[in-house]
């Protein structure tokens, strides 16, 4: 059994900027824990500690949490500053939430890091080999950069497609462009220099 006691204390010791920790255990005795980092700069020390206790990186989720609705501001008053995530990243609707889902012998621990728009986060590939593909996927579906990834090529999406696909609205007609027989045929014809006869 490798589930360390007092995970929260160990996580807090690895993250100097502070953490927000919660956990709950269901009726079958399965524990799910969440650890939000105040600074995404603490990700590597926290991951290093998790590596020493034999954690397995299950996967990584990235998304841009929606901004809360703006409060109504009366005339003459200044708008309050936008609310922030734990740690101070503004909830702009464009900030990233990166969730690292770890398994500790049956316990799920999710380490949450918030990265402001246009930011970057450190790669975990040096510690966890299993971070390779999830980080490559992260970089192609969002404009989030990963620092120190050994092989930052596209994973699933073709180089010919503009990146950050989940940050943009892509019309269905564009999406299915190359899947339409006639559209594809015309596209190829246009690219091929066929002598006119």
């Amino acid at each position: 059994m490798r589930q360390p006691n007092e995970i929260d204390a160990c996580l807090a010791a690895s993250a100097p900027s502070g953490i927000l920790y919660r956990q709950d255990t269901d009726d079958k005795g399965v524990t799910t824990a969440w650890c939000t980092l105040a600074s995404h700069g603490d990700l590597l020390p926290v991951a290093s500690w998790l590596k020493t206790v034999g954690a397995r990186l299950s996967t990584i989720t990235v998304f841009q949490p929606k901004a809360p609705p703006a409060p109504k501001v009366a005339e003459g008053e200044t708008a309050p500053p936008p609310p922030t995530f734990f740690g101070g990243v503004p909830m702009s609707g464009h900030a990233y939430e990166v969730d690292y889902h770890f398994d500790l012998d049956g316990l799920t621990l999710t380490v949450v890091a918030h990265v402001p728009e246009g930011g970057a986060i450190a790669s975990l590939t040096g510690l966890f080999r299993a971070a390779d593909w999830p980080e490559r996927e992260m970089m192609e579906i969002y404009a989030l950069q990963v620092h120190g990834h050994p092989d930052p090529r596209r994973l699933f999406i073709d180089e010919g497609i503009e990146g950050a696909v989940l940050e943009r609205l892509i019309p269905m007609s564009t999406l299915t462009n190359s899947a339409t027989t006639k559209g594809l045929w015309e596209k190829i014809l246009a690219q091929t220099e066929t002598p006119s006869s």
């Binding site: 299950s58 996967t59 989720t61 998304f63 949490p65 929606k66 969730d99 889902h101 080999r129 299993a130 390779d132 593909w133 999830p134």
Partner: peptide, 15 residues
């Protein structure tokens, strides 16, 4: 849903 993410067991098998 705001986000649904899943990872299948085959994902790490390629590596």
């Amino acid at each position: 849903p705001e986000r649904v993410k899943w990872r299948v067991p085959s994902f790490m098998n390629w590596d």
